[in-house]
Simulated scan of single mutants.
Amino acid sequence: MRHDKAAMVIDLARGMAASAEGLTINEMASQMGVGRRTAERMRDAVLMLFPQAEEISDPPSKRWRIRGGLSSFEQAPTATEMLELSKAAASLTASGDPSRAAELQGLERKIKAAMRSTTLNRMAPDLEALVRAETIAVQAGPRPGADETVLATIRGAVLAEAPLHFIYSRPGAEARTRIVTPCGLMFGRANYLVAHVPEADRIQTFRLDRMSSVSAGAGMARPPAEFDLPAFASQSFGIYQDQIEDVVLRIAPEAADEARGWRWHPTQALENQDDGSVLVRFRASGMRELAWHLFSWSGQAQIIQPERLKDVMAEELEKARATIAG
């Protein structure tokens, strides 16, 4: 068996050991990026190499898992894997989110503590060299920070399906006590609680840095059955959720190549034009955040629709002019 095939078999074994319920053949194929027949051959190789693997009946299919985990030999991380973990923690620290960075740093320490000293010593020089050769470019923007106690309380309420109580304060508005059903968390330029508000019967977002006196309440509070957090998050261009609109932008020929390589939105579609420009189409909310982004294209992005985005862009330009005039 070639080395790359052997590595794939070990990787599949890790997946089988990491799954409490086991993997079906289709899930193996999806995880490894191969066809079903190849996945079956890889499964057979795993069963031969790891006799502790077991088959589980789950009609109409079958699952396979490895109970008890794998040995440190099969689980030893690579220098680049440890580097990415270290960089992820450094990125969170640089962006002002030390509590989440501490979680990754704790995981890094646990992984190193579980490694054989010979493996750790062999990896150390390469890891040190890579850490010196790579860094995080910190960009201007809000510091999203999330209090460790607040995060723990929200996560506990989500797991317990309990209502969440907190005081919410916004600039220019009176602080209010809110009781909501927590649906999840969104992390980005700012960190948000996503929750169902019973009195309004709708999903809303709440910035974590504006929440205080956070506690889980008594009773049950389950999110709406049809709610899907990734789908909700993908509706907006940024974080802010409002009316969803059809967006069409024309990117000038000189910036078309960059636009084709840009991830605008999960629903995006690109259309090349005869003059070398490209039309970008997607459906999203958050027109103000989109307008802010379009400033970075230095006049090379023309708004075709919607009209509201044009109005928001004009409003932001007027604010900018007023600042300069002042």
Rank of each mutant, 00 (worst) to 15 (best):
I167A: 07
P253M: 00
Y168R: 08
G217K: 05
E148A: 15
P223N: 10
V138E: 11
W262I: 01
N272W: 00
S215Q: 09
R222E: 13
A216Q: 10
H165I: 00
A221N: 08
D209G: 04
I251W: 00
E148L: 12
T177Q: 15
A162R: 13
A269E: 11
S169L: 06
R170I: 02
I244P: 05
N191D: 13
E134G: 14
E199Q: 14
G219P: 06
P224C: 04
P163Y: 05
A173R: 13
I136N: 05
P224F: 09
A255S: 14
D147W: 07
M211K: 03
P182K: 12
L249C: 01
R207K: 14
P142E: 13
A221V: 02
F206K: 08
A259N: 06
E258F: 11
H196K: 13
Y240F: 15
Y168A: 05
T205W: 07
A225C: 04
S215A: 08
R263P: 02
A255Q: 11
A190R: 14
R222Q: 13
A221L: 05
A252Q: 06
L185W: 02
A218R: 14
T267P: 08
E258Q: 13
F166Q: 01
A225V: 07
D201A: 15
P198W: 00
I136R: 10
L185Q: 06
T153Y: 10
A133G: 09
E258I: 07
I203M: 05
F232I: 01
N191Q: 09
F206D: 10
F166Y: 00
Q243F: 14
D147M: 05
D201G: 12
A256F: 02
P223W: 12
R178Y: 02
R189M: 11
R222T: 12
Q139R: 09
E271A: 03
A162P: 10
A200S: 13
I167F: 04
M220C: 07
R250E: 03
Q268E: 10
V248A: 07
R155W: 07
D201Y: 03
G261S: 01
T149V: 09
V247F: 09
A162E: 07
Q241A: 06
G145Y: 08
Q268S: 03
A200P: 05
